[in-house]
């Protein structure tokens, strides 16, 4: 995994609660057997509508790297394709008042930062995006803050372990195999229960 670096990025507003992974990446894209190139399937059924009103179709949000949404973002299926698609499209962080658990985990495994802010802070971002064309936020993971050029900022929480993995781009498996001794000991005490 690539190490997470602080960045300043354009914010795209997705003003909906309960955005589910079926919307983020519809099923026809789950037939992929690789992780790359899924950006074309991102919000496929919402994008490319005749009226072009979906946020990611609008010219001004084409280069967005931060997505802001409402509560329970990423609910539904466990498909990691949702995160791969967001990343492939260019997103590096997602801001919402809450995330579905599996989705949030999947983000962390892919160097994507899920930022939980208070509903009123999220609302403030939505308002600012409306007010300022080209509204951008700076994400500072070591300091656990997001801030804008007008002096607004908010702090977010993240588990120290997840933060460390993101910042160092740690490969989970390697990290685990450091504990080979403990795993082997556990396995010795707990034999496979199946006889076929």
């Amino acid at each position: 995994m690539q190490a997470f670096k602080n960045f300043t990025g354009l914010v795209a507003p997705l003003d909906r609660p309960n955005v589910d992974t079926d919307q983020i990446i519809p099923k026809q894209f789950l037939k992929a057997v690789v992780r790359t190139g899924l950006g074309k399937g991102l919000f496929y059924d919402w994008r490319n509508q005749p009226d072009n009103r979906f946020v990611l179709d609008q010219e001004r949000f084409q280069k967005a790297t931060i997505l802001v949404a409402r509560a329970n973002f990423g609910c539904g299926s466990s498909r990691e394709h949702a995160v791969w698609a967001l990343a492939d499209f260019g997103f590096k962080a997602i801001i919402a008042p809450s995330f579905a658990d599996i989705f949030r985990n999947n983000c962390l495994k892919n160097g994507m930062l899920p930022i939980i802010l208070k509903p009123e802070e999220v609302e403030a971002i939505f308002q600012d995006v409306k007010r300022h064309e080209g509204y951008a936020l700076t994400v500072d993971l070591p300091a656990q803050t997001v801030s804008d050029e007008f002096g607004w900022s908010a702090r977010f929480e993240i588990e120290p372990f997840a933060k460390k993995c993101l910042l160092e781009g740690l490969d989970d498996v390697a990290l685990t195999l450091v504990h080979e001794k403990e795993i082997s000991a556990f396995e010795k005490a707990h034999p496979v229960p199946y006889k076929s």
Binding site: R79, H81, N105, N106, K109, N110, V173
Partner: peptide
Amino acid sequence: FGIGTSEVEH
């Protein structure tokens, strides 16, 4: 519990 593909690998 359900997991994503990176966790499947893990």
